[in-house]
């Protein structure tokens, strides 16, 4: 309770607000009437058993579902301060992805040099000034705690890096464009424990700069890195709250069963 009030002492501002979100893969109703805030410069964890829709939910934020035919959104994800519904049909998904970056389950560096991987998002946005690129690439690599390891070999292929380094490179790539929200889709599930620890530490440091939403199937990870936790089951949001409360005294019995390992 002390921890909770300490957190609430800082002003908490909503960065995004999910309202009545339904999502359909063709006929399959994957997300059911989700309402949830995402707080600015906080880490929000989405937890739940496999198939509960947590990744589907995460991928709605940057409209990744638009890449495949037959998918349909209903409801709103409003992004603040400009109060725009990112799911509105009139909103260009590319515009949305310019503001909301994503880090994937498996490290997916492009077949390019370390430098060009990080510069990718800037180049896509039309940036070609060498000085700006150099500056941004270094800044992003520093933020991703990778600069010291790669500064001597920026022109080497990204595939030469280890799995953990590749994932930090993907984080640097996502950070280079100064996103407002950073989405993590089980970012450590393909990594060993040491690499996992360094990514978790990084997420902890990054929340001073950016709003983070992370999907994880590892409850200890959710407890370690997040400020808020949402428990999902069968496409529904069962419970949302401050992480400590969710883990110490959840309000709903289903949440407690899942967290204590009686289920899932």
């Amino acid at each position: 309770m002390v921890a909770v009030s300490a957190q609430e002492a800082a002003p908490v501002v909503a960065k995004a607000e999910v309202r009545g979100l339904n999502f359909y893969y063709s006929d399959f109703h994957a997300l059911k009437a989700i309402d949830m805030p995402v707080y600015e410069k906080k880490v929000t964890a989405l937890i739940g058993p496999s198939g509960c829709g947590k990744s589907t939910f995460l991928r709605s934020f940057n409209r990744m579902h638009d890449l495949y035919p037959g998918n349909r959104y209903e409801g709103e994800i409003r992004l603040f301060p400009d109060d725009v519904n990112v799911l509105a049909p009139g909103v260009d998904p590319i515009e949305v992805r310019m503001r909301i970056s994503m880090v994937f389950q498996k490290p997916n560096p492009f077949p390019k040099s370390i430098y060009e991987n990080v510069a990718y998002g800037l180049r896509v946005r039309g940036e070609s000034r060498r000085v700006t690129l150099n500056e941004k690439v270094e800044e992003a690599l520093r933020s991703a705690a990778l600069w010291e390891e790669v500064k001597e070999r920026l022109q080497e292929p990204a595939f030469n890096l280890s799995g953990g380094q590749q994932q930090r490179l993907c984080i640097a790539r996502a950070l280079a464009t100064d996103p407002e929200i950073l989405l993590f889709d089980e970012p450590t599930s393909a990594l060993d424990p040491i690499a996992t620890a360094s990514i978790e530490e990084l997420i902890h440091d990054l929340k001073n700069k950016v709003t983070i939403v992370i999907v994880t199937h590892n409850m200890q990870q959710a407890a370690r890195v997040s400020d808020y936790t949402a428990y999902m089951y069968l496409g529904e949001l069962i419970e949302f709250g401050v992480t400590d409360e969710i883990f110490i005294k959840p309000k709903k019995k289903e949440t407690e069963d899942y967290i204590t390992g009686r289920f899932g």
């Binding site: 890449l67 992805r97 970056s101």
Partner: peptide, 10 residues
């Protein structure tokens, strides 16, 4: 996953 990585960058 590579294409998604690129699309996700805008």
């Amino acid at each position: 996953s590579l294409r998604e990585g690129s699309y996700a960058m805008g």
